[in-house]
Design a protein around this nucleic acid. Sequence first.
DNA 1: TATAATTATATTGCATACAATTTAATTATA
DNA 2: TATAATTAAATTGTATGCAATATAATTATA
Lengths: 144, 144
Amino acid sequence: MKENYDSLKLQNQLCFPLYACAKEVTKRYQPLLNEIDLTYTQYIVMMVLWEQKQINVKHLGEMLFLDSGTLTPLLKKLEVKGYITRTRNEQDERSVIISVTQKGIDLRKKAKDIPEEIGKCVNLTQEEAVTLYKILYKILDKIN
Amino acid sequence: MKENYDSLKLQNQLCFPLYACAKEVTKRYQPLLNEIDLTYTQYIVMMVLWEQKQINVKHLGEMLFLDSGTLTPLLKKLEVKGYITRTRNEQDERSVIISVTQKGIDLRKKAKDIPEEIGKCVNLTQEEAVTLYKILYKILDKIN
DNA sequence: TATAATTATATTGCATACAATTTAATTATA
DNA sequence: TATAATTAAATTGTATGCAATATAATTATA
């Protein structure tokens, strides 16, 4: 009475290549991000702030799928670097407002070529990239 | 002379949904894996050992895209739990051979239903799943 | 309007990840 | 065959991530 464990084989997993791919791609960012003194997670935070200028921690966490245990220390580091400020919302003292500084805004110019560099090393066709994008967001939309 | 920073918008990134999706899906494993006292990374290590019974750290790292800085402490924890043993290769003392114990083998029965449970919460069509799988492995194959 | 419930961050503890370095063993070569 | 180069793990240091809990502020309700 032999059981079938095929579903537990590494090559039959969908999550594993997802996990590995995310790590490998993120790793490719690091040498580029080192030049502007950011980690990948710090970079996506700055991306949000380049668009919005200002956002509270809760909303930021919802956008990036990160909780306060990750964001609080990370934001303090960005504050030390001078890229953001953290101030309590005067209307609701529970909330902390993150604002980008001029130094943070200036960083965007230096980051400008990073997406293209990463695109090169990922090397998908335009069609594949669009398909991947759609499927990933389908998962993200359903999962929460 | 306004510069165009569209490529730095969060919604134009391919890496971000990849990063977020990997995290969110992995998070869904945790309640299931808690019942058999494994983390996700420990789980994929056990997956390899359920197939191979024995493998050295270097080869394991290549399969899982993990380095010794991650694997060494993780494997020591699996050893403490009694799921694996770590022994030096007598032919080459630099190499450490990881072997699954009977207790480790028995764990597979308890893990059997996990892939299906995860499949439910990801909720892709069979075709989407296959497409995603292929694109992810295309990236992984090229990137290293 | 006191008190309970909820909400937004912060903190703590644990488990990755990885770059960089170290150590020990093996292999290549002058 | 000594010495240099290479290789495989282990170690160190830094940065996430997240569950669980704590704290403080706000809101709901008896």
